[in-house]
Structures are given as structure tokens and as C-alpha cells.
Nucleic acid binder design. Sequence first.
DNA 1: CTGAAAGCGCTTACAG
DNA 2: CTGAAAGCGCTTACAG
Lengths: 346, 346
Amino acid sequence: MPSIKDIARKANVSTATVSYVLNETGSVSVKTRAKILEIIKEMNYQPNQIAKSLKIKKTKTIGVVVEDVTSFNSSEIIDGINEYAENHGFSLLLTNMRVLKRLGQEYSDTENVKKLAAPAINEILNKQVDGLIYIGFHTRDVTGIIENDKIPIVYIYCYTSKEEDYSVNYDDHLAAYESTNYLIEAGHRNIAVISGLFNSNPSRERFNGYYQAIMDNQLIFDPSLIKTGDWEFESGYRLTSELLAAENHPTAILAMNDNMAAGAINACKDKGLSVPADISIVGIDDREFSSYINPKLTTMRLPLHEMGVEAMKSLMAIINHDRTVQRNKKLKCTLIERKSAAKVFN
Amino acid sequence: MPSIKDIARKANVSTATVSYVLNETGSVSVKTRAKILEIIKEMNYQPNQIAKSLKIKKTKTIGVVVEDVTSFNSSEIIDGINEYAENHGFSLLLTNMRVLKRLGQEYSDTENVKKLAAPAINEILNKQVDGLIYIGFHTRDVTGIIENDKIPIVYIYCYTSKEEDYSVNYDDHLAAYESTNYLIEAGHRNIAVISGLFNSNPSRERFNGYYQAIMDNQLIFDPSLIKTGDWEFESGYRLTSELLAAENHPTAILAMNDNMAAGAINACKDKGLSVPADISIVGIDDREFSSYINPKLTTMRLPLHEMGVEAMKSLMAIINHDRTVQRNKKLKCTLIERKSAAKVFN
DNA sequence: CTGAAAGCGCTTACAG
DNA sequence: CTGAAAGCGCTTACAG
């Protein structure tokens, strides 16, 4: 591997001059520039970024700490981060904490995650990254997992309670509001909700979105239509069965994720109801399986790719000392109309 | 950020001595070691890996070039790579080429992928990674995409025609052999195949596995039972419909991926056949959706995580000049028994 | 327009 | 057991 010295020697100039043409700084005569460029090409010289980084104290690399890459939302977020990074000459140093595999459901205990995060983040910082992106696998408060004061950082798919932190998530309230509205516009008046666990912020936000749509449309809010699930398929199945046991059962169900929506569809089928002819079901997430189940699920697509891009934008701004960036970005989900919801005829 | 100089000064020793205790090289008296260690802790000193890398010419980081992170197989592979890397003190520099989004189906043209790969790989090499892992999103010959002679590299989910290259894949032949055997053991005698495109190596290997299972069990090979699909849902649906039109239709179908298996299930349902009571279906891949469709799909799980781990093992060996590593590793898939296949009664 | 020199933060023969 | 010094491959004030 030729170094800048080799180029300089061969071109009969100093390394400074080579450096100037490499970086297009300084002023170099057209003639020597041409000669240097030629030799660079001839020797197939590639600058050693490690050496450069040491000198300029910037690595042009971003540390990406992800709680679990195998989680369904991680890939698209990383894809978005990568796209932006590539367009701006940044590289990604990826660390996967494997939270799901290692902690199972104990991820909720911040202390456990912190134990995983500390060494990972330490290692990344020692590699002198210019900034950090932390990707949760599940929207929640993540305060205390990272103790950091020396590096710009933005959180995706999670947030902290610290005012000075930056995060990008999607708008849960709006997602539920829009999907509920969609059902209302289709003529539904009895719209049930199968929510996630109520100790989660997204559950509450989504419920509020649903509630507001009901109110805005002057419908009657019926608490018996609200069922609390646990995000899993089985709870969607079980709670739908409960819902259908009532004599005047709802004509539509908003499930707060696609897992539970899939459970709901199965419950309807098992009761001999046809989806969407007899009952409409909409989910939230747009998982891979959602277009494979029967009927294909109408659901809200999460702006995952965009979240990655926006996080990078925030991070770049912070790195460049632009403190006017919005601290808590909330992106919009989009409704994907498939086959599990229909207009009501009467 | 304190440097090794700061530590040395405060401890009244040379930077050499600090370096010795940091790396546990050289011999340092217990006393000075203790003092240095104390000061390191006190100042919360963290060694700058960039500086170290420049000196020792090793970065302890591996470049991971993935054709498309959003492809269903990528995450688990990365998870495996990450696990091994973490256990051995390596970091991952990730580059996503976004082949699917950028090229659509034109990925098959090596030239197009090469155009994407060249700058990505160049950038990674300039960051002085110690090795490279290339993850295809689809098993195929990838010769010519990377022109490299200076760095150890192993291919996952793809391979090259060069003898000196290393790759890790799974055993297509065995996967089809075992799944066919499974159906035979369940009593099936008329087992159809819906294959992928026959210009792909996996299709051919899988067909051979099927064929060998038929032969080994002294069954009759019936060419009319072999249908060539294109890996997509629709072809599974269409070809299954064709299969079912025959008067003595098969009692089992081996679909060469889960997409087509899902199509097959739907086709059966639409013809009024019950899966698995009337007809058994098994897939290959174990996609996320495969446990959500109805009935849940019996399929071969790909050893993705393990492929990541094995690739890292190969890479470490090559880096350490151990040239005895197996050049083409083929890992075993495992049958996931769910609900889409059953014994035949007669 | 160009070069000599210092320095980024480490490691490592070498001498003592 | 310890330190002075050179060097990894760059960049950048500074002088001319």
C-alpha cells in the first residue's frame, strides 16, 4: 500500500502538497496538481482514513447501537440511516446488543439493558465515532441506559426523559386517529379496540387517537369495546372472541398491532364470520406477514426508513452545532389499504 | 479526553510504561503498575483505538457488505456475525448496498451490482478493516463483484467460481432431501415439487435432493409432478392449481420456498381442499409469516445465525493465516414441524 | 505556489 | 524494570 510519502517522493514534491491536492485545500499549480494526480492514479493510491482520522479528530463514522437487529423494525431503520450516511460520506459502526435473545422479556428492566449497553458503547466511543444512534426495538423510555456527555446522540424507536436529548419516533396518536377515521368513513359505528399493554406509552397514545376520532365524529364512546391485550397473537384471538360473544358485536376492530390483528382475524373465522364482509379489522405496523395472511391485512405502515433518515439529519445537525433541530421528531404512518376492512352496507 | 501522555505525566513514568500495563506486555513492577492503574481509573482514561490502529496496523474491525439489509435473511446473519465479533473483540463496519431497492430484479446482472459494490468496498478498505464479509441476499455466483487481493474475505449466501475464495451457505440438496423424506415417512407417495427458477443453483440442488429421496425410497419419479415456479407467491398458487386439476393429484407438495408454499396453501383452500387433511405442503426458508398463515407452515429453517458465526470463524482463521479452513461451508437446515403437513391414512 | 516541521495518540525495539 | 526515541500516515500552521 503506497502512502502519501511514496506519492510525494515519486512526484518530487512534499507530502504537504500531495495532501493539498488530495483534499483540494491550499493552492497548487495546475501543473504539479496534474502530475500528482497522475501518480496517484498510477500507483492506485488510497488515503489511509485511520491516519487522517487521528490527525483531524473526526472519523466520519457513526456508531449505531441497536437493541436487536432481528427485531422486525430494525432493518428498515438501518437502511434509512445507511442511505443518508452513504450520501454524506459517513460509515456505520454497528453494534447489536441482542436484547431479545439475551434478556427475553426482561428488557423492560433498564438496568439489564444498561449492562449490555455500557461495554458496547464504550468500545464504539474508543473507536472515536463522531456520533451515536441508538435504536430501540420497542417504543419506551430508555433513560439511564446511556450515560454520555461527550458525543452527539439520537434515539430512534425510544426516547428519554431528558430535555436535552434527541429522538425520532412515529406518531402513535395520529396513526390510531387516522385508522379509526378510516373505519368511521367506511360507515362503521361500533368500533372496538384491542390495545397493547396499558403501561406503554404507545398504547396510551393510540387509545387517545382512537378516542379523539370517536369524539370528533360525534360517535358514542363505549368502554365495553375497549379490550386490553398484550401485543401478542393469542390476546388478539382471545379478546376478539370475547367481543364477538356480545349480542350486538362491533362491526370493526382496530388492533394496535398486526400480531393481534392476525389473532382477531382468526377468531372471526373460527366463529364463522367473514372478514371483511361481516367484520372489518385493521392493524398497525405492516409486518411482513401482513400481506400474506388471508385476507391481506389493512394496516398502518410505520415510517421506519424515514425514521433512520431523519435521525441522521438530526445527528448531522447536532454534530455541526446546529441546535435548532427539533428534539422529538414524530413521523407520520401511512394507511395501507388491503383486504381486511370494507365499507358497511345497510 | 486524557491521553496516554497525561497518564504518564501524572504517574511520573514514560508513556511506554503506561502502554505496557495497558496491554499487559513488557514487565512492570507491581508498584508502578498499581499506581498507573489507579490513575487510569481516576482520570477515566480510555485508549484511543484509532491511534492504536494506526500504529499496529490492525483495526480489529470487520467490514460487512450486505447486498440488502432489508432482505429477510440478512438480519439473522448479521446477528450471528455480531455475536462472534463481540466475543472476540471485533467491531463491525456495515455497508448496505440496497441492491433490491436500487436495482429491482436487475441484480442478476453482476455489472450493476459491481458498480454499487466498488465504492462501498473502497471506502471500507480505506478505513483499514482487517477483513471483509459479503452477504448476498440470494444464493448465486457473485464472481467479479469484488476485485480484491489484499484482504481476507468470506462470502455468505453466495459464492464465487474462484477456487481460492471462501464461502458459507446452507445445504440445499440436504434440505430438499430431508423434507422429501419427511413426507415419504408420513406415507406420501405422490409428492409434487414446485421449484424455483431453474437457472438458479439452489433450484437445481434442491431438485436433486428431492430426486435422490425419491430414488432412495424406491418410489417412482413422475416428471409431471415437477413444476417450475419463479419463487413468488403467485406461481405457487398457479402451479398448485395445475397440479390439482389432474385426476390423481399429489397428496403432498414440496415448495422450494415459503412464498410459493403460501401460494400453494391458498390454491388448495380455493379448490375446497383442506391442508393438511387432504394435502400436505412443506416449504423452505421459515420466513416470519410462515407461522402466521393458516395452517402454520411446516418448513425448513435456514441456519442464518450459524452462517454468520461460521463466516466469522473462517475469516478469523484466514486473518491468522490458517489456510486449513474449509473453503465452502454448507450448513444444515432444520425441519420445523408445524401444521401444514400430516400423515396419510389409508 | 511549495516545503520543513510539528503533532495527532499510540507501540515497540533498544539501551541501560 | 524503565525511558528516550522513532514511527504509523496523515494535516496544517508557518515561513519563504
